[in-house]
């Protein structure tokens, strides 16, 4: 960990005037997005989330990931040092038409959500040969 990086979780943003119904903190998960030849891979850090507590919704061109976390509080213990907060995770991305929406795959391992968004046939990289002037 040589890089300096923000250690604190970021609170998820809410539109003005919108309130949540659940009384919990919601954080923006950190993500890596890598574009490969045939798909786009999104990895999101969501500690406390497993395959049963993550929701992925696709509405029009908005892809939302929501991870619900049940806080595990050791019984009869009190918190004396708190360096991180516990809450749900939410983040929304805009998808382009280039994604094959029918074949999005999602897995969760060790608190990391991995989404594979396959590119639609038309969006796959094509090599255009450049020819010299005829």
């Amino acid at each position: 960990m040589t890089e300096k990086r923000e250690l604190q979780k970021r609170d998820a943003e809410l539109e003005k005037g919108v309130e949540r119904t659940r009384q919990t903190r919601v954080y923006t998960p950190a993500v890596d997005i890598i574009e490969k030849n045939n798909d786009i891979v999104l990895m999101a850090d969501m500690p406390g989330v497993d395959e049963n507590s993550v929701d992925i919704t696709l509405e029009k061109d908005l892809l939302t990931i929501y991870g619900k976390v049940e806080p595990e509080i050791p019984e009869n213990h009190r918190l004396v040092i708190s360096e991180y907060g516990v809450g749900d995770y939410e983040r929304t991305f805009t998808l382009s038409d280039e994604i094959d929406r029918e074949h999005i795959r999602a897995t969760v391992k060790d608190g990391v959500l991995k989404l594979v968004l396959p590119k639609a046939e038309s969006a796959k990289t094509k090599k255009i040969p450049v020819t010299g002037n005829a």
Binding site: I73, P74, N76, H77, V80
Partner: peptide
């Protein structure tokens, strides 16, 4: 990593 410490 950030830690939380609980005691009893």
């Amino acid at each position: 990593p950030p830690v939380n410490v609980w005691v009893n």
